[in-house]
């Protein structure tokens, strides 16, 4: 079980959270081309290493927040509020 540190509630068990996919993907304007729109909907980096991703404390405070997680080890490096810039964390196993 992962221990996830909600920026509002502190460390909680993984079962209280819902995964929200890759973070920092900006929604384009409505009049972009279909290719750009489909890239927004479907294309992800599939990172091997430190990934910025969204989580929601769905069985707690209900808020979305971001986390940096190493996809190779499941180790979390940072938790931060939506709207904050991605923290500078080097790729390290």
């Amino acid at each position: 079980m992962l221990l996830i540190d909600c920026p509002y509630c502190g460390p909680r068990a993984e079962i209280e959270f819902a995964y929200g996919g890759e973070a920092h993907i900006a929604r384009p304007a409505a009049d972009v081309s279909e290719a750009e729109w489909s890239a927004f909907l479907y294309l992800r980096d599939n990172t091997k290493g430190v990934l910025a991703e969204r989580w929601r404390h769905s069985h707690g405070c209900g808020r979305f927040f971001n986390a940096l997680r190493d996809t190779r080890t499941d180790q979390f490096h940072a938790f931060y509020e939506i709207g904050m810039p991605r923290p500078d964390v080097r790729d390290a196993v």
């Binding site: 509630c9 909680r12 079962i15 209280e16 069985h59 707690g60 405070c61 209900g62």
Partner: peptide
């Protein structure tokens, strides 16, 4: 006070 899960229920 907090919301959490009791077994499978919010």
């Amino acid at each position: 006070v907090t919301r959490t899960l009791l077994d499978k229920a919010d």
